[in-house]
Amino acid sequence: MTRGVVRTGAFVTAGIFLVVGCSGGGGSDNSNKIKGAEAATHSASPSASASPGGQRPKITFPSYAKNVFEGQQTGDPKKDAVLADNAQRVNSIDDAIFQGKADTPALDFYSTGPAIGSAMAFIKGWVTHRETWVGVTRYFDRKVSFRDDGAAVVIYCSDESKAYIKDEKTGKVDRSPATSDAYVLYNTRLVKSNQGVWRTVDVASKRGASECQP
């Protein structure tokens, strides 16, 4: 079973989608999905230092799990900083899952408002069932736009088809074949803190989204 499939309900927030479509602003053409895209890839870093500002909490993944983020370098420093903190927010959630607790410094550092509540509920589902995951989760088609109020919107897809749920009680890994539910569309809103960190405030997600299917 791919990761997240049995936990997805807790991660979908009541927030509306902020920009229509996975293209992130200006059209809904999905022809540039990951096939043929030339994008840099980044795995979870031992330390969250991708963008400036603040003493960033350490994030460390176990050797058997990795997040890969495509399209990190856009050529626009402001967009790159937003994408870096978006990636670290994702990493902070998985870091909490691996630690088995929902009150890590990194989680609060990269999330605030409704987003931290939804993240904690999601994490607690894993912790309660004593589950983690193994493998690789890929994040792609990441697009940034900016609102008139200064907030940023990041819309992106995830591919969980090569990440699998591990039962910590037995050590068994469920490697059931992936379905369309392994692909998730996320729509997030971020605001910049006084320390220069782009913190995620709102999250909406759609599992099995057609926009993210291969």
Rank of each mutant, 00 (worst) to 15 (best):
M1K: 07
T8S: 13
G9Q: 12
F11T: 05
V12D: 15
T13P: 04
I16W: 05
G27P: 02
G27E: 04
G27H: 05
N30M: 11
S31F: 10
K35W: 11
G36H: 10
G36V: 05
A37L: 09
T41V: 14
H42V: 09
A44G: 13
P52N: 11
Q55S: 11
K58S: 14
F61K: 12
F61N: 08
Y64I: 10
Y64Q: 13
Y64T: 15
A65E: 01
K66A: 10
K66R: 12
F69Q: 01
G71F: 00
Q73M: 13
Q73H: 15
T74N: 10
G75W: 08
K78N: 14
K79N: 11
D80T: 09
V82Q: 07
V82H: 06
A84P: 01
N86H: 12
V90W: 12
N91L: 08
S92R: 09
D94P: 01
D94R: 00
F98D: 05
F98K: 02
F98M: 04
Q99K: 15
K101D: 07
D103I: 01
T104D: 08
P105A: 11
P105C: 08
A106W: 00
A106I: 00
G113C: 05
G113L: 06
A115S: 14
I116D: 05
M120N: 13
I123K: 00
K124Y: 02
G125E: 15
R130H: 15
T132C: 04
Y139I: 04
K143W: 02
D148C: 04
V153S: 04
C157L: 01
D159I: 07
E160C: 02
I165E: 14
I165G: 04
K169W: 00
R175N: 09
P177A: 12
P177L: 02
T179M: 01
V184W: 12
L185M: 14
L185N: 02
Y186M: 07
L190H: 14
S193D: 13
G196S: 08
G196Q: 09
V197L: 07
W198S: 06
R199C: 06
A204R: 10
A204T: 10
S205Q: 14
R207D: 04
R207Y: 10
G208K: 07
G208W: 08
G208E: 05
Q213D: 08
P214G: 00
